[in-house]
């Protein structure tokens, strides 16, 4: 149930992760697993996409994979 969620997918939460270290889309999705946020897969993808568009993080390739990151 949504009331059991212990993680919230918010812009501030994403910002904190991306300031700490570069992350791939998969890394981010792991931080906001549906079973922890109570969101559906589709909601998670849509909300995370909107947040990333707003944050407009820097991008770099590490080991062939695109990573996002932010500087303070």
């Amino acid at each position: 149930t949504p009331s059991s969620s212990d993680v919230q997918l918010t812009e501030e939460a994403v910002r904190r992760y991306l300031i700490r270290k570069p992350m791939t889309t998969k890394d981010l999705l792991k931080k906001f697993q549906t079973k922890r946020t109570g969101l559906s897969s589709e909601q998670t993808v849509n909300v995370l996409a909107q947040i990333l568009k707003r944050l407009n993080p820097e991008r770099k390739s590490i080991g062939d994979k695109m990573h996002f990151y932010l500087t303070e």
Binding site: V45, A49, L52, R59
Partner: peptide, 20 residues
């Protein structure tokens, strides 16, 4: 499952590719 995670990552990347 990891395949569900893969699908979500692919969907997210597709959304962002339009933007980037």
């Amino acid at each position: 499952s990891s395949s569900e995670a893969d699908k979500m990552a692919a969907a997210l990347e597709a959304e962002l590719n339009d933007f980037m």
